[in-house]
């Protein structure tokens, strides 16, 4: 039974990682940059929901929606102010800027909301008992998996069927050629950040509902793990983010349960290293030789 419990915990945690990883992977696919501030957007989303529910007594649904709206705007503003001016800059400059934005968000949160951890009230409470006394699934875990599936299906339909989504794929392949089609590349990049940040907000709320501590650095570790998941699955690949996220969640949970709680991160990263040694482009990534 504890094995099944671990599988369930792993998959629900993995679903949250997958939602975060989608943000990383989409932004990487389009803007060819690693947005290391993505994890901190998760934290902002969680705080917005926390205050909406705690200080203003708004229902959870409204709290989540508010978090999504605030983070969407935040993501677009970050892109406009910090990354867009660097569109032609070397990728290292963009990477360092992203790390800078990450610290800016963490420190701003500390000034605004204090460094002390807050206890997050889950958006849904209780759990579903499958085998009395032995196997139960929390509603948050169920909700996480449902959200992940909905997001995945939604994104697949969006990028596969809609004009906007196809334009996004065109941009991710060749921005110059996309412009020649009449696609506004800047607007497309901005939209990608908006979608990624909206997903980050959702993930933040789910994360804090499952593990109810909230502090200005709450987002950084899940952010890094989700980044790992994105690389694991093949950065730039949407199904890769899902696979990477779920696997990472399961490996982390099993590592905690069967190896050592302290070593769970080490286990996760060791698996990542092994996968990258065998498949440098990640599990579902395509290896694209660089043209010279």
């Amino acid at each position: 039974m504890s094995f099944l419990n671990n599988v369930i915990t792993g998959i629900s945690l993995g679903s949250i990682y997958a939602i975060i990883a989608l943000g990383y992977t989409m932004v990487y696919g389009i803007a060819k940059m690693l947005n290391f501030a993505h994890g901190d957007v998760i934290m902002v989303g969680a705080y917005v929901c926390f205050f909406a529910m705690g200080s203003f007594n708004l229902p959870p649904v409204v709290g989540v929606l508010l978090a999504v709206v605030v983070c969407t705007v935040l993501g677009m503003v970050i892109e406009r102010l910090a990354y867009k001016p660097l569109r032609a800059a070397p990728s290292l400059a963009v990477l360092i800027t992203a790390i800078g934005v990450s610290y800016l968000l963490q420190n701003s949160a500390q000034i605004l909301w204090g460094a002390a951890t807050k206890t997050f009230r889950p958006i849904v409470e209780g759990s579903l008992t499958l085998v009395p006394g032995q196997l139960s699934v929390s509603y948050v875990a169920i909700l996480s998996v449902v959200c992940c599936v909905v997001v995945m299906v939604g994104l697949t339909l969006f990028t596969g069927q809609t004009k906007m989504g196809k334009a996004m794929r065109a941009c991710s392949e060749d921005k110059g050629a996309a412009q020649l089609m009449g696609i506004d590349v800047n607007a497309t990049i901005s939209m990608t950040f908006a979608i990624g940040s909206a997903l980050a907000a959702l993930a933040g709320v789910l994360m804090c509902s499952a593990y109810p501590v909230l502090s200005p650095t709450t987002g950084s570790m899940p952010g890094i793990r989700a980044f790992t998941a994105a690389v694991f699955g093949g950065i730039g690949s949407v199904p890769g983010a899902l696979l990477g996220g779920i696997l990472l969640g399961v490996i982390e949970t099993f590592g905690k349960a069967y190896i050592s709680t302290d070593l769970s991160d080490a286990v996760v990263f060791a698996v990542l290293i092994i996968v990258l040694l065998v498949r440098p482009a990640g599990l579902m990534g395509k290896y694209v030789p660089e043209k010279v």
């Binding site: 794929r169 392949e173 996309a178 696609i183």
Partner: peptide
Amino acid sequence: FLQMTVEENLEM
């Protein structure tokens, strides 16, 4: 766009 279908290329 090498990863898109012929028709998707034309749609673009």
